[in-house]
Every structure is written in C-alpha cells, then in structure tokens.
Design a protein around this nucleic acid. Structure first.
Length: 444
RNA sequence: GGGAGUAUAGUUCAAUUGGUUAGAGCGCCAGAUUGUGGUUCUGGAUGUUGUGGGUUCAAGUCCCAUUACUCCCCCCA
C-alpha cells in the first residue's frame, strides 16, 4: 500500500457540518430575503478569474493575498478575492443589463493570509454582497447603509456600530495637513489607533512615521473635533472652506445622513469615523464598515463603499457604483462566541418507526402521506427493536415519533409520541395531518 | 509577512525528579428492559503519545528538526 494519507483540511478552510450548516442557512435566508426586499436580484460568478482582472485593485497588501493558480507553466488565473471585481467585470461584458443594476451575490472568496478562527478570519469565507450600479445620488449609499442596519439587527448579533467616512474627506485632511497624496494611507493608519493606544501613542507613532511637528499639530486640530455627526460635519466644512475635494466629501455625508433619516434608520448605531480608511484601492466616495461592540476583536463584519470608476478601469462604461459586503463567517463567529447558536442536528419533524415485517408497508405509506403534506419525515431503515429506533429519534432531536404496531393495526389508530414531553397519544389516521400541523405550529 | 505557544483514545484532559502493561470523565457498542428514547445500573471496544532523528540502562516526559493547529501583530470579511 502507498503511504498513509493524512486526512486534513487545507489551511484556513473548514467543513461546515450539518449542525453548522443549518444555522448558516438560516442566516443566509435572512440576508437574502432582505436583499430581495430592497429589489436586488441574484448573480453568481466563477471561482476563478484571470489574473490581470484581479491584480492591482486591492492595494499592495491585497495583491499579495490573491491565490494564484499555476498551470500549464504560467500563472494566468487566480481565485476570486471578493465579489466586487467580478461584478465590475460582468458590467463590462453585459451591456443589456437594465440600469440601475442591483444585484446580490452570496459566494465564497479566497485570501491567502494567516487564518485566525478566534477573529473569524479564514482563507475561504463567504461574502454576501449587494451593489447598485448606475446611480450617483447618495440615496443609493443611504439605502445600502440602511440595509446593513436592517440585516445586522435581524441577525440578532447584539450591539454593533456602522462607521462611515468618505475618501474625499481623507483627501481633504491630507491636503489640509499639507501632505502628498501617497501619505494618505500612513496618516489614517497612524490615527486610526487612537482608541487603542491613546493620544500619546498616536503622537509617537506619527513621529516614528516621519511626520513633521507642524504636520502632527494640524492632525491634532482635526482630531480635536468631537461631538455628534452634524456638529463634526459643520466644523469640517469650516476647515475645508477652500478645499473643494474635502468639501464635496462633507456634502455627500450630509446627504447620506439626511437620507438615512428619511429611511427611518436609527442613527445611534452609526458613527462618523474620520480615520476609517479601508485598504481596497477602488473606493472613491463614501466608505463604511461595521463591527460588534461586544466582540470588537472580531474586526469588521461588513465593509463597503462607493467605487465610481472601477467599472471603467476594466474597460466598461463609466458607471458609478456603490455596495457592501456582509461577512457571513464573521457574523457567525460573533453569534457563536455569544453562544447564540442553538444547535440543531436535524430538520426532521417526524420519525416513522417500523414495528415488524408485517408493518413495513403501512409505515412507508404513512411516511409518504406525511411528506405529501409537507411534513419533514424520516422512516427508520431497519426492522429492529423499538429501543434503537427511539434512540435514533432522540439523538437527532426529532420531536415526534410515529408507532404502527399490531395494536394500532387492529384499532386502526396511529400512536404518536412527543419526545420532549414523553407523552404519547393514539389518534385516527384521518386526523394525523391536522394533529401534526397543529403541534408543529403550521396552522394559522 | 513578523512574533509566541500547543500536540497523549472519537472528544476533553491525567500520567510523580525521566522508571513496569499510558489512565479517567464524556461519547460509542452491548445487556438489565422481546412495544418506547432522554435518567439509572452492569459489562465492553479504542492509542505507532503528530512525524523523523538524537541523549540515556530507560523517553509521553529532555534536546534538535519537521508538520499541523492555536494565539497576538499587520491587514481585512
């Protein structure tokens, strides 16, 4: 025999066992139904893309994390890194799509970084994207943010915050401080840690980064702006008096806030974060990210923004676009660390037992009848002692067990045991469906 | 990409300064109970101690390498 194979998962990938899949499917059902409620239509794209399409869109770090496929001597393809670039590609290739094109997409993506399950970080993970192509009003941005709020609330993840910012505000700040454009990212990175390392820490970090004293001084002027969103935006407007690009960002955000109110979005979960940067290169306007307030170590649960020229950069029309991704695995991690995952081993409602050879036919008929009436039903596959059959129902947490023994045969009744109560009753066959529908809460 | 830690049965963990045949809980299988699970009682099965080398009279235990996993930073979903 050949060497023993060491069965294991590829690093950073997991098997989603039934218990987990049942929960994931429930989550996906919620997400999909919200997407559809807002008028989004489904799209799927291949796992693999040509490398020239993937490269250069995600920033320097991102490019390194693309899984490259090596075949026929040359690396020309890679696993998709997100769902936004594939959408942009689709938009360039299918001109007949009605604008605004609103699509949702729920698929895995791959990133070659170091897995960290505790933070919900994997190499293969699911993204649930919703994007609006062809609209440049902030109504679209507001709808996306509103929808994120809706989904996170419905998934019952506990306290969360959606942080918003604008690429043009970042540019405005960079200009205000007097820095060259390429320092923008360093600037954000340094200041973003304010919460973690405090004022002194940021000061040190910035001077280590080579920022001059007067520059740091100006940065702290901006840092000093505090208060609610409106106040901050008003003060920024003042600072950006002669700064057209920064001003544009502020106006966009003002509009978004206004529209969010119109949509009835509770603003207490939404925070303006002037130092939210987001690594992906293609963003051009408003950007947003959300995280759990109870489990901040898990990082971002959703992330998105406006990317007005990405589609053109792939050779398509210059369509404005905005969208978000919902990080299914991150959210699942939050729920699991909050012990909110009720473990289900089965979706079956009824187990039909088989008493002996003479009752096989009857049991199978009842099983079939239940299924015809949309009741999730299993039949036990062996003619064996009741003990084993009940034990199976118990292990799989199947709530009802049907018994058809000699006694039931002669009385023309069916015995049904309620496994959680331990109680058992006999009913007429023609009452069976009504009885179970009642028990399962299916009748109005 | 940088740093740290862990590895013993299906699983969670034991095993004295290195010292006989590596143990226990849970789980699993069987019986008590030939029409009934979840409780109880009785019995049973399961290990190349991650892998390879080294030190030693003797290694689960010490050393080196390797692999896997975990954690932190970076970045993100």
């Amino acid at each position: 025999m050949a060497n023993k194979i060491d069965a294991r998962n590829f690093k950073g990938t997991r098997d989603y066992l039934p218990q987990e899949m049942i929960k994931r499917n429930e989550m996906i059902t919620i997400i999909r139904s919200v997407f559809e409620k807002y008028g989004f239509v489904p799209l799927e794209t291949p796992a693999v893309e040509y490398l020239d399409i993937l490269m250069g869109k995600y920033g320097e770090e991102g490019d390194k994390l693309i899984y490259k496929l090596d075949y026929k001597g040359g690396s020309v393809a890679g696993m998709k890194y997100d769902l936004t670039i594939p959408l942009a590609r689709v938009m360039t290739q299918h001109n007949h799509l009605v604008l605004p094109f609103k699509r949702y997409q729920i698929q895995p993506v791959w990133r070659a970084d170091r897995p960290q399950p505790n933070q919900g970080r994997y190499r293969e993970f699911y993204q649930c994207d919703a994007d609006i192509v062809g609209v440049n009003t902030m109504i679209a941005d507001a709808e996306i943010i509103n929808m994120i709020h809706q989904i996170l609330s419905q998934l019952d993840i506990g306290r969360f915050v959606i942080r918003i910012n604008h690429r043009k505000i970042l540019s405005g700040i960079t200009a205000f401080v007097g820095l060259p454009k390429n320092k923008e990212i360093d600037l954000c990175r340094g200041i973003d840690k304010l919460d973690k390392i405090g004022r002194e820490g940021v000061l040190k970090e910035l001077s280590d980064q080579g920022f001059k004293e007067d520059e740091i001084h100006k940065i702290f002027d901006i840092l000093a702006i505090e208060g609610d969103i409106h106040k901050v935006l008003t003060e920024l407007k003042n600072i950006f008096k002669n700064n057209e690009i920064g001003l544009q960002g502020v106006i966009d955000l003002e509009n978004i806030i206004e529209y969010l109110k119109n949509l009835g979005t509770p603003l207490e979960n939404i925070k303006l974060d002037l130092y939210l940067a987001r690594g992906l290169d293609y963003y051009t306007g408003a950007i947003y990210e959300s995280s759990s307030l109870d489990l901040p170590h898990i990082g971002s649960l959703t992330g998105g923004g406006r990317y007005d020229h990405l589609i053109q950069s792939l050779g398509g029309n210059d369509y404005p676009a905005v969208g978000t991704t919902i990080g299914l695995d991150r959210i699942a991690t939050v729920l699991s660390q909050q012990n909110k995952i009720t473990e289900k081993d089965s979706l079956t409602n009824v187990l039909v037992t088989i008493f002996d050879e003479t009752s096989v036919k009857k049991s199978m008929e009842i099983c079939s009848l239940l299924r015809k009436n949309d009741i999730k039903t299993e039949i036990y596959y062996e003619i064996t002692k009741m003990k084993k059959q009940f034990n199976y129902a118990d292990k799989k947490k199947i709530p009802y067990v049907v018994i058809l023994g000699p006694e039931e045969m002669t009385t023309q009744k069916i015995s049904i045991k309620d496994m959680s109560k331990g109680s058992q009753e006999q009913i007429n066959q023609d009452e069976l469906i009504t009885y179970l529908n009642n028990k399962l809460g299916k009748n109005p």
